[in-house]
């Protein structure tokens, strides 16, 4: 997947929950080496849009297209290219951090990932806690571990919903270093209301704004 030219294209995305129209004709295109931010007031549909982009939710109308070197990626294979960190994504609480990492890495067909995991665990200051059950982690540590799980496969497209949530200053700095690195040659999609996060973006999509 290295040196691939990825494109994420949203075409006239509409999402309606019964009679409530959440997203109306959202269209954009983002390519490797750039970042896009999704912003808007609470309840405006930021998370809904992220879920649609990640293939976790179907849009009412419109479509999301992923292209790798101009070749459309099948919907079923998108998971190999994306990573997502969000407050609504939880890890398996009964399993240890290492068991969670192994599960997500093997599901993505990774083989030699121990060096990458070691590097990420050190970056997020989780070294030494690999064999503890996730339920013994604080909310901030769980948030850090979510980043580790989302980054093991070096995703071509990284989605981060509320990048600062539950993190202390050291955690925010670690996340920022990752986000800066991601936008250099891959795609970064941030959903946020924080003005500082918006400075990372090359494009800003405002949802819930008439």
């Amino acid at each position: 997947m290295l040196n691939a030219k990825m494109e994420l294209i949203a075409e006239k995305i509409v999402k309606r929950f019964v009679h409530f129209l959440v997203l109306k004709n959202i269209s954009f295109k983002v390519s490797s080496g750039s970042a896009i931010a999704i912003t808007g007031p609470n309840g405006s549909g930021k998370t809904t849009l992220v879920k649609i982009l990640c293939n976790l939710m179907a849009p009412t109308r419109g479509q999301v297209v992923y292209q790798n070197n101009s070749q459309k990626i099948n919907r079923e294979d998108i998971f190999q290219y994306i990573g997502l960190v969000g407050p609504y994504l939880q890890l398996y609480q009964e399993l240890s951090a290492q068991e969670n990492i192994d599960f997500f890495a093997r599901m993505r067909n990774l083989k030699n990932y121990s060096a990458r995991v070691k590097q990420l665990m050190e970056l997020f200051n989780l070294s030494g806690r690999e064999h503890d059950a996730v339920k013994t982690y604080s909310s901030g540590m769980q948030q850090r571990l979510k980043y580790v799980c989302a980054l093991i496969h070096e995703p071509e497209v990284l989605f981060v919903d509320e990048p600062r949530s539950n993190l202390d200053q050291a955690g925010i700095e670690a996340v920022y270093s990752i986000l800066q690195e991601q936008k250099k040659d891959k795609i970064l999609v941030i959903s946020t209301n924080d003005q500082e996060d918006l400075t990372l973006a090359d494009q800003i999509i405002r949802v819930g704004v008439a």
């Binding site: 990640c54 976790l56 079923e76 609504y88 398996y92 997500f104 599901m107």
Partner: peptide, 14 residues
């Protein structure tokens, strides 16, 4: 209930 359904959807084929 443990909100891992989306996490699983993200990495696996249905």
């Amino acid at each position: 209930e443990t909100q891992t359904a989306d996490t699983l959807k993200l990495v696996a084929r249905p």
